[in-house]
């Protein structure tokens, strides 16, 4: 449980820091779509993948790079936790 909290905070902070210039005023719910909210644009996903790979020591396969896995904080956390490469 503690691990999950930790991962969630790391992801949340990364999104705030990396896509929102550290702006904590923007309301961001854990289940909100990052694409729909315009936070991740058509090219921004690579930054997220690089971060996830480096921080959590997993390899994100090309076929995993889909919105179903990575489009909200909850989905990203789930993806990381389910990742067999960890």
């Amino acid at each position: 449980m503690e691990q999950k909290e930790n991962t969630r905070d790391k992801i949340y902070n990364f999104i705030i820091e990396n896509y929102l210039f550290g702006d904590t005023d923007t309301e961001l719910k854990d289940d909100e779509s990052l694409l729909a909210k315009g936070i991740v644009d058509s090219t921004g996903i690579l930054e997220l993948v690089l971060y996830v790979e480096k921080t959590f020591n997993i390899k994100v396969k090309d076929e995993d790079m889909i919105p179903d896995n990575l489009d909200s904080i909850n989905q990203i956390v789930r993806y990381i936790n389910d990742s067999p490469h960890r």
Binding site: D41, S42, T43, L46, P67, D71
Partner: peptide, 15 residues
């Protein structure tokens, strides 16, 4: 744009 080209088809479409 290399960053655009290297994203997945699903992402491109969702965007």
């Amino acid at each position: 744009l290399p960053a655009y080209q290297s994203q997945s088809k699903e992402y491109r479409e969702a965007f």
